[in-house]
Amino acid sequence: MRRVLAWSVAVAIGIFAILGLWSAATDSGPVSAEDTAREVSQSLRCPTCAGESIADSSALLSDAMRRTVEQQVRQGRSAHEIQAWFAERYGDEVLLAPPHTGYGWLLWAAPVALVGAAVVVLLVRGGPANRRRWTGLLALAATTLVGVWLLVPRAGAPVPQGMQQEGAGPVDTLPILRDAVDHAPGNAGLRLAFAGALEEAGKDAEAVKAYAAATRLRPLDPDTRYRHAFALVRSGEPRAAREVLEESLRVRQDHAPSLLLLGALVHGEDPDRASALLQQFVQLAPEHPAADQVTAFLEGGLGQMPAEVLP
């Protein structure tokens, strides 16, 4: 038994040493406000997407949430404070990692508690051979869990005040993309990236032109056509958007996002057609984040269009 304990302690020390070295190697000192904002954005779930963080989501709500995160980081709030701020507004579901409060504690503590419970059961019920075999392994597992558990809260460190002015604001990719499009005007992918950057910068009219160009290059691609239509709605041209979507559905009748957007657009003028389009959308994409809300909308229990339906 003494030998097993000695081995367990040695293994524990070894794991902590490795974790410490790893931590030191990955710790590049004080981080910039931009890095912190990115890190916090990666920890927040886009409320209208399927399992995407707001850092990775292209939804407009995520864009607004990213801007809010950047503002709060510049104000000197810590990651934990910003996460708590969002959780208060959107519920704990907005946190991609469970919170260290309420039921969230259980998710963090449960693995450690389970290992502890298993040790107790083994000591009480296991035979001598079992004890020797499992105690070392359990010590290893417990140490790893505790090590990970201790390392995770590092994201909550406050932003160093002296670094908050540095690197604030996203890199301006527009000029780079504009040059790239000028050099390769037939590249639809570049056109789409350029259009997305224009949208991000609030240049809706220019974005529409860029999407129109991409649509001319990819006339049969429903995704490109959908993004073109989306930009048209944002720039106040819903009729033009409808024409683009009608054409898209002639090319491909089962493009769910187009059905959803067109259904939302024609709702005011032609409720019957809107219902048909939205029902088709729900049938085709029952797992879509908006499907439940659209169903409720169709059943008359919810007069609200989901945020991602319209720009």
Partner: peptide, 17 residues
């Protein structure tokens, strides 16, 4: 609220709310 940040402040995820 051009940027949508006021809506985020109020916890809005869809419209109308």
């Amino acid at each position: 609220d051009t940027e949508g940040t006021l809506a985020v402040e109020w916890g809005i995820s869809g419209m109308p709310q």
